[in-house]
Structures are given as structure tokens and as C-alpha cells.
Design a protein around this nucleic acid. Structure first.
Lengths: 220, 220
DNA sequence: CTCACTGTTATACCGTCGTATAATAAATAC
DNA sequence: GTATTTATTATACGACGGTATAACAGTGAG
């Protein structure tokens, strides 16, 4: 029998490749269908490498979850800080980034949901979720505060915290249903809906967020 | 060997019992950990009954998903229609019902997320999700419309639809993070946050929703 | 009380799971 | 070139998955 020809990759490349294959398999077939053999096949290696690089399949899956969450929050934060601009524009870009591709993605929401299902009973997943959620809230509060002061609005920490919780929920919900793309409405309208709702939640005048980034996306 | 003593139940009771056992197992261990043998043990029967009543394990799991979704939407709708009252009170009760027990539940959100993870690639789950989401949106629109007219606000169908999408996202997000109960804030404040945000999204005066149901929950 | 019906149990089967182990070959050092 | 290292493959093993089948027992009809 012919033994397969192979190439030695760097440890980082191999780990990354395996993690991406893991996410791809979990997204398509859930945690139950993502078997060690399938993941290995997708990464074009044999299943033994999983043990070699991660010790066990379970550890690899958890590492893949951390990778996914990191990518999601990183993309949103980058969009906000992209090019400074006024506070309203930064917050608006942050919101919009979460309801447009690449964050708006059926594959990513499938992954996210699958992992969320394990948060309740698996401490490892719970820790990753809590940390990422906190990071998201903190980022939102930091974006909200300057917007409030720019509008001469009360901006106590408690106040910003409540706004961040509500805004995060709005973003999560729109991202979720939009990504699933059930065809009940046009996902292209999500940025408009999201910004209008965000203005309402924060008690800002109409278009104070949408107007701050309308240069690129003029659609009135 | 002693054969187990058993009792013949009605078909409905047996099916219901198996479906509840399925949900319990999936909530605790995910789809991968919820094996036919474990589910059967939890329902205090042997695994063969799954085939007898549902044909296969997969069909039973899907039926359990439908049961869960039905319970969730039914509970929220009942809370709204509980005792008529003015439109603001009905909408407020609907919102609050989704961010308080029994809908606010770590087990239910775990289940919901686990199943959502399969919506993308499994047509059966996708259909159940789309139908339930549409039902939720329609219910919200029906609750929103009379509130808008009561406040002499524009209430076109398109307008109500956008409001419903945003409000649904807010509710989903708060329900989700609140149920996971990561300890980052007190879930007891969720109704207040939810109602204030809902007022903002709909452009209603402050306390127009919260005030409508403050008789039982006076906390100002 | 007896019998037939069928809900339910017990068991066996085959496939696949995760992973441990040994053989192999690609890369590196000299 | 040769030796050495170790990343990678190939294979085997025990456990467990879903489910098909046959035996059993609770239930109601006569």
C-alpha cells in the first residue's frame, strides 16, 4: 500500500489549519457530526495529528471556539476604530459592522449558537463566553459615553452600562436573525433598522448616528 | 434475569414523556451527548421505544424542537393577552414576559441555541425556526400598531414591520444573555432595561410602557 | 378465566467514535 | 552522503452509537 506523501508544516500553520477545519465541520454538521476523522480529512491530514497538536479532540474544539469569538469581536472593534472621526461615526460603524458581512454570516452564527448551547454546562465554554461578552460590553460603553456627552446628555457609568446592555442585545438579535437569512425580509435594510433603533435606545435625535456615516452609504 | 416491571401508558403520555426527556438531555449535554440510551433511561423506558414511537432518534429530536419553540412563543403570547388592558400594557407585558422566568431560563436558551446551530444546514430545523420567528414578528406588529396610534404616531405597515424587527432583536438579545446568567449584572434589572429600550426604539415618551404595568411592579 | 393484541423489554449487530501505538518519511545537522 | 529527529501516517483496539429483532408482559374483550 502506498503511503501518503506529506509535507511538514510549521506548528502554527498546522494548528491554524486544524482549527479552521474544526470550525468548518462544526458549522456544517454540529458538534455531533464533527468527528475527528472528518476534521482531519478536511485539513488533509490523518486523525492522529489531533492528539499530537492538541492532546484531545475536545481541547481542539474549545480552542476553535476561542478563535471564532476572537475573530468576531476583533472585526467589530476594528471597524469602529477604523478611522477615528467623531464619536457618533465610530459608534455607528461599530453597530453597522455587526449587521453586515463578514460578521453577518450564516456559518458564524451557526458556530456561535452551537457553542452557546454548551455554555451552561461546560465551565470552559462559559469562561470564554463571559470574557467575550464583557469585552463587548466594555467596548460599547466606551463608544456610547462620548456620544452622550456630545449631545449634552446624562452619562453616568450606571447609565452607560444599561445602554450598553440594551444596545448589545439589539446588535446580537439583529446579527442572529439576519445571519440566519430566513428570507422574511431583506437583510440589506438591517443597518438602517439597527441605527434607527440605536438612536431610539440612546434617546438621540433621528439620524444622529445614521447621518454620521452617510458619506459612503448614501441611500436616502 | 428479572425483567423490569412496567406500565402501559397512553400514546400521548409516552410521547410527551420521551420528548421532555429528550429536551432535558440535549439541554445538559448537547446533541452529541444526548444518546438514545440516555434519553430512554431518563424517561424510564428502554431505547427501543424511541423507534416504536418516532421511527428514529433524529425524528424524535426534531419533534422535541418543535415542542420547545411552541412553548416559548405560547408563553409570551399568553402573557400579553392575559387581561386585555390598554395596548401599552399588553406590549409591556409581552416584553417583560420574555426577560423574566419562566421564559428567562438557562436550560431553554441552551436548547434554543443548540437547535439554532442546525438551522443553517438542516431544512427541517430551518422550517421550524422560520415559522416561529414569523409568528413572533406578527405578534409583535399586532401589539405595536395600537400603541403607535394611541400616541398619534405614524403607523404604516412598513413602519410597524421595522419596529417589530428591532424590538424582536432587543428581546432576543436580552433573553439570551440574561438567561445565560454570566453574573456580569443583575438579571432583575432586565425588565426595566427592556422597557426603557423599547420605548426608545418606538419613539414613545419615557415611562409610557413601564408606567402601564407599574401597579404590580412599582419600583420607581 | 382465557386469549389475543401490542406496548415494552432485552439483546444482538454492525458501524463509527476517540485515541493509543508503531512504522515511516520529511527535514535538518554534520 | 549519512545519521538523527520528529512530524506524520497507518493501523488496531475498546467503547459506544443507533436500531433491528425476538421474547415477554400488561391490558382489555369475550
Amino acid at each position: 500500500m502506498e503511503r501518503k506523501n506529506f509535507q511538514r508544516w510549521s506548528q502554527d500553520e498546522r494548528r491554524q489549519s486544524l482549527l479552521e477545519a474544526t470550525l468548518a465541520c462544526v458549522a456544517e454538521q454540529g458538534l455531533e457530526g464533527a468527528t475527528a476523522r472528518q476534521i482531519a480529512q478536511r485539513a488533509d491530514v490523518t486523525a492522529g495529528l489531533i492528539r499530537h497538536y492538541f492532546g484531545s479532540k475536545e481541547k481542539m474544539v474549545q480552542a476553535a471556539y476561542e478563535l471564532l469569538i476572537g475573530e468576531l469581536t476583533h472585526a467589530a472593534k476594528c471597524a469602529a476604530e477604523a478611522d477615528g472621526g467623531e464619536p457618533q461615526a465610530q459608534l455607528a460603524r461599530f453597530v453597522v459592522a455587526n449587521v453586515t458581512p463578514p460578521n453577518l454570516s450564516a456559518g458564524k452564527v451557526s458556530l456561535w449558537a452551537t457553542f452557546i448551547g454548551r455554555v451552561r454546562t461546560d465551565p470552559g465554554y462559559a469562561a470564554v463566553h463571559r470574557d467575550s461578552y464583557r469585552e463587548f460590553l466594555v467596548a460599547l460603553e466606551a463608544l456610547i459615553h462620548p456620544v452622550l456627552v456630545a449631545h449634552d446628555r446624562k452619562a453616568t457609568p450606571a447609565c452607560c452600562s444599561r445602554y450598553a446592555i440594551a444596545l448589545n442585545a439589539l446588535i446580537d438579535g439583529l446579527w442572529l436573525e439576519g445571519s440566519l437569512d430566513h428570507g422574511l425580509y431583506d437583510v440589506g435594510t438591517l443597518p438602517t433598522i439597527a441605527l434607527a433603533a440605536a438612536e431610539g435606545i440612546l434617546g438621540l435625535p433621528a439620524d444622529s448616528l445614521a447621518g454620521a456615516i452617510s458619506t459612503t452609504d448614501n441611500r436616502s
